[in-house]
Amino acid sequence: MGNEYYRIALVGNPNTGKSTLFNALTGLRQHTGNWAGKTVSLAQGSVDFKNKTFQLIDLPGTYSLFSNSKDEEVARNYIAFEKPDVTLVVLDATSLERNFNLALQVMEMTTNVIICINLIDIAEKQGIEIHEKRLMNLMGVPVLKISARNKLGFPMLLDTIDRIVNGDIKCQSFQLKYPEEIEKKILKIEQQIHEIIGDTVSARWVALRILDGDESLINEITKQFKLRGDY
């Protein structure tokens, strides 16, 4: 073996074909695994590319990462605390408006993001044309069009993952600028948060979540720090 090993998380809205993509990529090389002291089990599978092994983790399908439900917390915690090497955001090409919403939230949390626009075949039939280059410039991360059902766009996808983990592509994920009033408040607490939690999690993101009143995240951070024994 001796393959280099990378963890790739899949997130997406429900019904975007995220699991279809996961299944198509990993074939039958799947199992459900627990992660670091958690009781939550997630489907995992692996795919070999060049001399690397990508371990794919199929996170629960969610509309957002605001911890409105257990699934959302699971997905959020994985991205924030388990820090996958790359996060694939799987979007439904036929309802991008709502789907981008989730992509933007992921990009607030982590840098190495690939936007996978799935169901592209269906979107084309419906007369939806997606200009991935333009989106790529706007979002600062790779944007790919795929069809998981028809296994279209996979070589490009694997190659992009490969180039991100090699450092050949530097993601500069787009950071939302909020209205001035909110930005001011973020600024007020961001520094303090950074002092407490360091670089483990994006302080700006935590600041935003705190302003949003996301208490469960605070509990989770405290728990995570205790687990790692440096709090």
């Binding site: 509309y63 957002s64 605001f66 409105n68 408006e97 709502r98 919403n101």
Partner: peptide
């Protein structure tokens, strides 16, 4: 509350 949140999330 949560319901408002969820509705907003859904568009």
């Amino acid at each position: 509350g949560v319901m408002r949140r969820r509705l907003l999330d859904l568009g």
